[in-house]
Design a binder for these strands. Sequence first.
RNA 1: GGAGAGAUGGCCGAGUAGGUCGAAGGCGCUCGCCUGCUAAGCGAGUAUACUGGGAAACCGGUAUCGAGGGUUCGAAUCCCUCUCUCUCCGCCA
Length: 423
Amino acid sequence: MLDMKYIRENLDEVEQRLRTRGGESYLDEFKRLDLARRTLLLESEQLKARKNVVSDEIGKVKDKSLVQDKILEMREVSNEIKAVDERLKQEDEELQNLLLTVPNVPHPATPVGRSENDNVLVRTWGEPQELPFAAKPHWDLGEDLGILDFECGAKITGARFTLYRGAGARLERALINLMLDLHTDTHGYMEVLPPFMVNRDSMQGTGQLPKFEDDLFKMVDPEYFLIPTAEVPVTNIHRGEILKKSDLPISYCAYTPCFRREAGSYGKDTRGLIRQHQFNKVEMVKFVHPSESDAALETLTGHAEKVLQMLDLPYRVMALCSGDIGFSAAKTYDIEVWLPGQSCYREISSCSTFGDFQARRASIRFREDEKGKPEFVHTLNGSGLAVGRTLVAILENYQQEDGSVLVPPALRPYMGGLERISR
RNA sequence: GGAGAGAUGGCCGAGUAGGUCGAAGGCGCUCGCCUGCUAAGCGAGUAUACUGGGAAACCGGUAUCGAGGGUUCGAAUCCCUCUCUCUCCGCCA
């Protein structure tokens, strides 16, 4: 959520920067609602001030029969207040709803552009290798090796659900452990294991609600939502809190499954593990001092890259343009891993800084000085990494001509020493 | 699922026959004093949001005692609904 005061005082600039995201104008309504609300607020408060003063006088008089006229008058004032407050409440709700649907202002360093075609290549790592034989996509490899069973997943639940078997299940688990160990032991994150379902307040805090309810799996009674990413429960750990400056930066990492409706993506990536309704992810989340957030995004991205380097998987880092960054993000790097089975780069991690956008929604603050006013922290997060897609990358990059798949050396300790997955 | 207890400021904790309570007291913290160090002591200050005025320091107003509604001239205090926490019983990985 953006700062109301900031919008009011910088309307043109905010509008202009939001427009670089493409799409509609966001702030036409704002001026009108803001003015209406403040006018009513003033009216209401003046009435209340009068009521308070007179009620105080009444309280001091023992014989109430002497102040009957005042009591009657205040009864009128009280009714007036009710009426004004009713209108105020409506305007206020409208304004809040508007603000909750306005996306974050892009970071000055975010390249301006309309679509993913305008994203900017930042760097590449490793050599995308063309295999000396006909490379298979992972869905063929997985089925041939008997480690991925898409049909069975569809039978148990439905489309876009997958059953992992044997070495496939073990490989997924090994990747989770490798990633968590790296981030906790080497990168200094605290591991947390959060709830996989959250309430509406948490979803609103990180920005999934109210605008993207259709993308979520929702429980009716009680009303809980399956998390689409660990970002939601982990960022909300500190919702409504005032942190100590000395607590910052706070770094958490978490493994969770993620659940996404993938509404509107019918027909996209229908084969294989790329786009599932349920997938595993290790997420990194940081709460930092505002002056640190730019640097923190770079190190966070580096932490995600490190996983791919350990697994010796070629990748590139893209700076997303203004038209492609997410609703809550100010700046985002996508890490894309090379998939020889499909001869393309695919997103495997997304690392973003949100500035104070989420912190304002979720009210996560700190004090610069012991006596100072609370200020909003900056939040960041990034996948480190999407586990299913990492498994895909391993299958496709480490496949051999005979259809077997070598286990990357860094992963072997986690696989009971297994060096090769074969039929 | 059944029975009961509770939710007050950074923390602890008073306050429920409605008005003098934004809220006693303590702890913590900040500033000052004092003590040649430390401890102790003394004094002052110490919530948040919105909002009016002001260049600012600052000075006003309103709201907030889990959340929402109601009664009343007036509610932390009375009534209703909800949420959460704790204890006991049942059930359970």
